[in-house]
């Protein structure tokens, strides 16, 4: 078989270290944020993004040239990068910010990613992000990056088919009330795509666990360290957090013994069957 003229894809996956999803969080006494002395792990949506990048390579074999993971965060974020490398990414970039620095806002992250993409000598074809971080629940970074780059975007993707020969990606998205299918063009240096994964495990398989040999291998993979200053971006938060508080507590109202008692309670609240 003659080698095709298909382009080799370079994929970037931005990831975030966040409080583990299973942790029951507590607001700190100063009410400036939450108690961060708890287990952290990779944002679950980003795990799906890394997994999908690795699967795209499994499907397309040699057409995927590189998978690079990127994080912007304190020194401890290095562990999150190693996890992604153990899952199958080739190399990593750590844009390090001081432990005490405020968490950058999506706009700051998007600007940092843009600066990073522009530094890649071979260009970037696809950026895959999680649809939101489970700490700030903002869900903006990917769209902001697509806007800054002027690239195609597909948010809340549940199925991705990349065709490097046709230079397109067909992406199915979850929208309110159903699904939508898009075709995104990839023409190097003009337009590429940015998509996010939503967490639909029927379409996206569970992210793989890194095996011990892969964890050992990941230790040898290159991690480039950069600072925000070196990238020439300003990531100072533009919004001011006044306070973080506990939500109003909801207390259960106790249990009933049977369906009749349940119905009585419903009736009390004015809930009856629908008049046919």
């Amino acid at each position: 078989m003659r080698p095709s003229a298909a382009r080799l894809l370079n994929i970037i996956v931005p990831i975030k270290r966040a409080v583990d999803y299973a942790v029951k969080i507590r607001v700190n006494p100063e009410q400036t944020g939450i108690d961060l002395n708890v287990k952290h792990s990779m944002n679950p949506f980003d795990e799906i993004a890394v997994e999908e990048a690795v699967r795209i390579r499994e499907r397309l074999k040699d057409a995927v040239k590189s998978i690079k993971v990127v994080t912007i965060g304190p020194p401890k974020s290095a562990e999150t990068l190693r996890t992604a490398l153990a899952m199958g990414a080739d190399s990593a970039v750590h844009v390090e910010i001081p432990e005490s620095a405020p968490s950058p806002e999506p706009l700051g992250v998007a600007k940092t990613l843009k600066a990073l993409i522009e530094r890649q000598k071979e260009g970037v074809d696809v950026v895959i992000l999680g649809k939101q971080a489970i700490d700030d629940d903002a869900g903006q970074t990917g769209q902001m990056l697509a806007g800054l780059m002027g690239w195609s975007q597909a948010t809340f993707a549940s199925k991705v088919e990349v065709d490097p020969e046709q230079k397109v990606a067909n992406i199915t998205r979850e929208i309110d009330g159903g699904l939508e299918e898009l075709r995104c063009l990839m023409v190097r240096f003009i337009r590429n795509i940015i998509f996010h994964h939503s967490v639909n495990f029927r379409l996206f398989q569970e992210p793989r666990y890194a095996s011990l040999p892969n964890i050992m291998k990941a230790k040898k993979k290159p991690v480039e360290k950069l600072t925000v200053a070196e990238l020439g971006v300003d990531i100072a938060p533009r919004l001011e957090t006044i306070e973080v508080t506990e939500p109003p507590k909801r207390v259960g109202g106790g249990k009933v013994a049977n369906v009749d008692e349940l119905l009585a309670k419903l009736k009390e609240a004015g809930v009856t069957g629908k008049r046919a």
Partner: peptide, 11 residues
């Protein structure tokens, strides 16, 4: 924020 387990006030 945090899946509704905290409420953030931002200006």
């Amino acid at each position: 924020i945090y899946a509704g387990n905290a409420i953030s006030t931002v200006r």
